[in-house]
Design a protein around this nucleic acid. Structure first.
Length: 154
DNA sequence: GCCAACGTTGGC
DNA sequence: GCCAACGTTGGC
């Protein structure tokens, strides 16, 4: 099993949206490196740190679980979609998505500042300046530390 | 709203 | 294949 961090803007899709929906497809990834992770490495059963970006403060809001492996992101072929890509076709969908399922919303939101202040999380990609990748691999110990930080009530 | 960092595009 | 210009991301 592997661990990941998925970024989302909570104005667009937050942990509360996921909690309400239960399962959703992770649409709209339009970056090749992130696409490659989604398409090739994200597997059913993997756990995901659900990260809120472009908000104040940014941080990890909870955990989701991958419940369906990569398949074509059909929003790329929908001219009405925000994520429309005219180059995508049924033969070559270009972009892929997975389905994720709600696991938990943290009782304690773990802000980016908290992550950066934790000595054990020094290597986390999300802590790196200029790190824009929206699908990031997370090593197991980091996942568990973040989960503990989020689960601990303050 | 600013702007640094990054990714993509396209002329050459 | 280089690289300048441009567009986007995302923290602050």
């Amino acid at each position: 099993m592997k661990y990941w961090l998925f970024k989302t803007e909570p104005d667009v899709f937050s942990i509360d949206h996921l909690k309400q929906k239960g399962i959703t497809h992770w649409e709209g990834v339009r970056n090749y490196q992130a696409r490659n992770y989604l398409r090739d490495q994200v597997k059913k059963g993997d756990l995901v740190l659900f990260y809120h970006s472009s908000t104040t403060p940014p941080g990890v809001a909870g955990i989701a679980c991958v419940c369906r492996e990569a398949y074509p992101d059909f929003t790329a072929q929908d001219p009405k979609s925000l994520y429309y890509d005219p180059k995508a076709t049924p033969e070559n969908p270009i972009w892929h998505m997975v389905d994720v399922e709600f696991v938990e919303k943290f009782p304690t939101y773990v802000s980016l500042e908290d992550l950066k202040n934790s000595a054990e999380l020094g290597g986390m990609l999300v802590c790196r300046r200029g790190m824009r990748l929206s699908i990031q691999p997370v090593i197991e110990p980091h996942f568990h530390i973040v989960k503990m930080m989020g689960t601990r009530r303050v």
